[in-house]
């Protein structure tokens, strides 16, 4: 139960400016997903909130109180590290019990055992409880690492790509499980992922980072449908948004527009100008078309059972595309 605030936070590692003037308010009970390419500052943001790093500028608040002077333990956060760091000298069971045995909690052993068992069950690692932490597969380590965050009930959960090395089915199961925990506990989550489905289905808010700056913060739908720049527009959407010169489909562009962004839903197939099918990618639930349109390539979606094949010609027409100016900013 906590509202987290970052107020003009800046932080650098030596010459590398990792974060620059980042301000955001994470409402109590929100599930915030941080997006951004590698090196954008996502992990740094989590470490600052956890108290593992000290910002050079700005303030960090939890429930309105500045926490800059608090130790990580006092901030009462749980964190799943990107490099899931299980204690190698302990068993899986003791790894999971470790936070519960901390001097902050001092729970009776019986309750610890019960909680460890319950978390192990929900993460499907019950049968590995007696393993050494080093005798696990990558995905199992990752689940133990998540488990270590879930055994206690902190005010804030910080998760750095927690599902990245799981298989698709387990990932889908745990996605639901984490969402259920979020709903049950009403805790505040800050979650880093590169996975579009995780971002769209779990998030109440999405923050997009670009080289240490927060460029947009909003609901997943806002980020997807109403991006402020080509950079944000490229973060979400599979296939990625296609960017073309504004006049590619003839006149009709707004005055300042330099680029048009086309997501699959912005492309009507069957009317308009001619394009050639380069490649048909059948992914099962969807089929992607790679089209040659003049000198440009456009990627869009079509009916999964389409009879189209490479080399054929189809007609396409843009519909309500996103317009961007010469700097990539939305018009």
């Amino acid at each position: 139960m906590a509202e987290v605030g970052l107020h003009g936070v800046g932080m650098s590692y030596g010459a590398t400016q990792a974060l620059q003037d980042v301000s955001m308010t994470i409402p109590d009970g929100a599930f915030v997903v941080l997006l951004g390419p590698t090196g954008a500052g996502k992990t740094t943001t989590l470490r600052l909130i956890a108290g593992l790093e000290r910002p050079e500028h700005g303030d960090i608040t939890i429930d309105g109180q500045s926490v800059l002077r608090d130790t990580p333990a006092q901030r009462d956060v749980a964190m799943v590290f990107q490099q899931y760091s299980l204690y190698p000298h302990l068993s899986v069971r003791d790894n999971l019990a470790f936070p519960l045995r901390s001097p902050m909690l001092r729970l009776p052993e019986a309750e610890i055992a019960a909680r460890v068992q319950a978390v192990a069950r929900s993460l499907r690692i019950e049968h590995k409880l007696n393993n050494k932490a080093t005798a696990l597969s990558g995905g199992e380590m990752q689940r133990v690492s998540i488990g270590r965050a879930l055994v206690r009930q902190p005010r804030i959960y910080l998760m750095d790509e927690p599902l990245s090395s799981l298989d698709a089915k387990l990932r889908a199961d745990l996605r639901v499980e984490l969402k259920r925990i979020h709903a049950d506990l009403g805790a505040t989550f800050l979650y880093v992922t590169h996975d579009q489905i995780e971002a769209m289905t779990m998030a109440t808010h999405v923050g997009v980072l670009d080289q240490g700056r927060l460029v947009q913060f909003g609901t997943p739908r806002e980020i997807y449908e109403d991006p402020v720049s080509t950079y944000v527009a490229s973060r979400l959407g599979q296939p990625r948004i296609t960017l073309l010169p504004a006049g590619s489909f003839g006149p009709g562009a707004p005055a300042a527009a330099a680029q048009m962004g086309l997501r699959p839903e912005h492309i009507v197939i069957g009317e308009g100008q001619s394009a050639t099918v380069r490649r048909v990618e059948r992914l099962g639930d969807q089929t992607r078309l790679h089209l040659a349109f003049g000198p440009h390539e456009i990627v869009t979606l079509t009916d999964p059972h389409t009879p189209l094949a490479a080399g054929e010609s189809i007609a396409i027409r843009p519909q309500n595309p996103l317009w961007f100016d010469a700097h990539g900013n939305r018009i």
Binding site: A50, T71, F81
Partner: peptide
């Protein structure tokens, strides 16, 4: 010894000395 272990312990509610 990677620092991550101590950082994890700090977050798990331990002091630096612990």
């Amino acid at each position: 010894i990677p620092r991550e272990y101590e950082e994890a312990a700090l977050i798990d509610g331990y002091t630096r000395f612990q």
